[in-house]
Every structure is written in structure tokens, then in C-alpha cells.
Simulated scan of single mutants.
Amino acid sequence: MSAPTHPGIRTTTTGVDTRLPWWALVLPAAAFLVLLVLMTGSDGAQATPGELAGGRVLEHLWQTLAL
């Protein structure tokens, strides 16, 4: 006896549903757009001339690994 299938699910001959839900495409695209806007909208940010942020990160990493 076979079980009834849901009318909204389309299966192929292998029994696998090949469709993606709408949010599986929209959420990654929205996340990409948000990150892109954050990256391009940072024109007003200025680094201080005396300190490099990358150097401070490497210094903290070096101190942490020296334990």
C-alpha cells in the first residue's frame, strides 16, 4: 500500500524534490546586498595616522599565541 503524497511537492523519478523554497534564494541574496552596502558605504571612516589596525591585530594574536 502506498502512502499519499502532498500535492505541493513535485518529485522526479528518483523521488527527490528538485525545487527550492523562495527563501533559499532570497536570504543569501539579501545578505550579500547588505554586506555590499556596508562595504561601499564606509567612505567616511578614516584610520588614525599613527596606528595601523592590522598591526594591532597581529600584535594581539602574537601575544595570545605566546602563552
Rank of each mutant, 00 (worst) to 15 (best):
P21W: 10
R19F: 09
W22E: 05
G55W: 00
A47K: 04
W62F: 12
T5E: 15
A29S: 09
P4Q: 00
T48I: 09
I9E: 07
V16A: 10
A29F: 01
W23C: 07
W23F: 13
A30L: 15
T14V: 05
T11K: 14
T5I: 14
E59P: 01
L36A: 11
P7F: 11
G8I: 06
G54K: 04
L35S: 08
T13K: 11
A29L: 15
W23V: 04
P28M: 04
A30I: 02
W22P: 05
W23G: 08
L27Y: 08
T18G: 12
T64N: 14
A53Y: 02
A53D: 10
D17Y: 01
A47H: 03
G44I: 00
P7V: 00
A3W: 09
W23M: 02
G15W: 02
Q63N: 10
A47E: 11
A66H: 08
V34I: 09
R56E: 13
R19G: 11
G44P: 06
A30Q: 03
V34D: 08
R10Y: 03
L27M: 09
L36S: 12
A66R: 14
Q46H: 04
H60A: 15
T13D: 06
T12Y: 12
A53L: 09
Q63I: 10
T48S: 13
P4F: 01
V34T: 13
G55F: 02
L27Q: 05
L35N: 06
L20P: 02
R56N: 05
A53W: 08
W22M: 10
V37N: 03
D43N: 07
T11G: 00
S42T: 10
M1Q: 09
L27F: 06
T11Y: 14
P49H: 01
G15Q: 02
L61F: 03
E51Q: 13
L65C: 06
W22L: 15
G8Y: 10
T12V: 07
T18K: 13
A53P: 00
S2R: 13
R56H: 10
A29I: 09
V57N: 08
V57H: 07
G44F: 05
P4H: 01
A53I: 11
A66W: 00
P7G: 03
R56Q: 11
E59N: 00
H6S: 07
E59M: 08
T40C: 11
L25E: 14
L58G: 02
S42H: 07
